[in-house]
Design a binder for these strands. Structure first.
Length: 491
RNA sequence: GCCCUCAUCGUCUAGUGGUCUAGGACAUCAGCCUUUCAAGCUGGAGAUCAGGGGUUCGAAUCCCCUUGGGGGCACCA
């Protein structure tokens, strides 16, 4: 793990509103991703719920990176995940903590378990285990460790692992905040490995050790972890630690009701960012997947913090619906603070090699377009024509509207624009209407050729808005060029 | 196979025994508006509340079964 990342992100903390004293039972939640890829939509929602729950209760949100899988964990993933969280506005109060930096803590915990007889060394090889597992499945039994080494009282050796001595009878009840009490038969559980032969702890053990040590009071996570919970509870109890509250949120599915994955399309937060989604829109969409507040659809972050409770989280899995997200994004683009929207747009145009240094100009462009696009990339595409007077005409559009029959209209506009006194939306519209009347044609026959001349396309913001944003000079220049184009096509 | 879990319009959901001939939103359809495209506005269609049994004067709401979906069953997290 690269130190640079860790140091950088450790500085980012949630600012305390005031210095009020907190009682020890202060609520503490955490998000604990494993850095084996980008931040997934489902992970983002889990993080969001944890964050909201902490903020709602004036508690703390802790970030922990579960990177004990040395093979699959990468520093790039860690960076991508942290950036995605920050982009969504999910700031953390403590961390990020890296499990690979906490090896000592787990080793001590394991040692204590062994000393107290709560765990034992196991020398079964992965191959043997795999074979037994297959056999069990073939014989239609639930695969579980058969306890070969349980009573052998082995000592630590080169390839040995450590297993938890799991109670073999009785029941364990998970009191889930979303689903209510769920009971598991301890017979279903087996002696899980808590320390691998490489010396690192396994997931189930590390989470428990960490959650205890970090004073996590509420574990909010995907319900794919539900069946891990009883064995974790057993570990808490073996440690003599308080068991936290659990809340298992339902999964997010694809359109075919299968677990959401790449084949359903974009599933990473970063991908949505790149596709031109606003973080507020994504947050709003994600929170409504499983959580609701009456009929309300649009929520500001402040409202969410105020309204969010676990009681209002549903139990059933939700299908990810990109179209509704798109609708929300459109709404947010429409209502976003102007300055922020202009800032957010900048990189999208710069990526296309366009010059965004004239902020007043880009501001006008954004104002023209924000009401008619669903994403920022769409806005970038739709606004590209503003930046270069040497526009490329869409071939169908030019064929239809850059024809000699419109030359007169275009020339008239070109000649009169510099003389216009009232160069405003109303003024321009009035001018065009008058001109249409004068020339005995419908407004449309002037507006469309004009649109193509100025934008290169038949689809654009209102022609009056385009003219204002472009300014008289550019308008004249583009009209001149269009007229030349018509001429050159009809020699 | 075993264990756990979920089940209201295509989708997200409201609904916690009577106010439900089930509400909202996205998508969809039609109309209006109109200088293009959107947006906006108005209206429509769309769920016998998975199916079957109970409990109750009364059930989308409570119980049971069935079916279907999802998750888990690693020295991955």
């Amino acid at each position: 793990m690269t130190k640079g990342w860790q140091e950088f992100y450790k500085g980012i903390h949630h600012k305390k509103e005031s210095g009020q004293q907190k009682m020890p039972e202060k609520i503490r939640t955490r998000f604990a991703p494993s850095p084996t890829g980008f931040l997934h939509i489902g992970g983002a929602r889990t993080a969001l719920f944890n964050w909201l729950y902490a903020r709602h209760n004036d508690g703390q949100f802790i970030l922990r990176i579960e990177d004990t899988d040395q093979v699959r964990s990468t520093a790039e993933s860690t960076g991508a995940i942290l950036n995605a969280l920050l982009w969504l506005g999910l700031n953390w109060d403590e961390g990020p903590f890296f499990q690979t930096e906490r090896g000592e803590i787990y080793r001590e915990a394991v040692e204590r378990f062994v000393d107290e007889g709560k765990a034992y060394y196991c020398i079964c090889t992965p191959e043997e285990l795999e074979e037994k597992r297959k056999r069990a499945l073939a014989e239609r039994r639930k695969p579980r460790y058969d306890g070969t080494c349980r009573e052998r009282d082995l000592a630590r050796t080169a390839g040995s692992a450590v297993r938890f001595r799991c109670p073999q009878a009785g029941i364990t009840i998970v009191n889930d905040l979303i689903r209510g009490p769920i009971s598991f038969n301890n017979e279903e559980l087996d002696d899980l490995v808590i320390e691998r032969c490489d010396g690192w702890p396994t997931y189930n053990f590390a989470v428990v050790v960490d959650d205890v040590q970090m004073d996590i009071t509420h574990v909010i996570r995907g319900d794919d972890h539900l069946s891990n919970t009883p064995r974790q509870i057993l570990l808490y109890e073996a440690m003599g630690a308080a068991v936290p509250q659990f809340a298992h949120v339902p999964m997010i599915l694809g359109a075919d009701k299968a677990r959401l994955s790449k084949r359903h399309g974009a599933t990473s937060v970063t991908a949505y960012r790149e596709m031109g989604y606003l973080p507020e829109a994504l947050v709003n969409y994600l929170v409504r997947l499983g959580w609701s507040h009456g009929d309300q659809e649009i929520f500001s972050k402040e409202e969410l913090i105020h309204l969010f409770t676990l009681e209002a989280v549903g139990k059933s899995a939700a299908v990810f619906n990109p179209e509704k997200l798109l609708w929300l994004n459109q709404r947010y683009i429409k209502t976003y603070p102007e300055e922020r929207l202009v800032d957010t747009m900048k990189p999208f145009w710069e990526m296309r090699g366009l010059d965004t240094s004239d902020r007043e100009f880009t501001g006008k462009i954004v104002a023209d377009l924000r009401g008619r696009v669903k994403t920022l990339t769409e806005m970038a595409d739709a606004g590209e024509f503003y930046f270069n007077d040497a526009i490329v005409y869409d071939s169908d559009a030019a064929e239809k509207f850059l024809k000699p029959e419109f030359t007169g209209h275009l020339r008239a506009v070109m000649e009169k624009v510099p003389l216009l006194q009232d160069y405003t939306k109303n003024g321009i519209e009035g001018f065009l209407r008058e001109l249409a009347e004068e020339r005995g044609v419908k407004l449309k026959s002037i507006a469309q050729p004009l649109r193509v001349a100025l934008t290169g396309k038949t689809v654009s913001p209102g022609i009056d808005e385009v003219m204002i944003t472009l300014g008289k000079e550019r308008v004249v220049k583009r009209l001149k060029r269009a007229l030349e184009h018509i001429e050159s096509q009809n020699l």
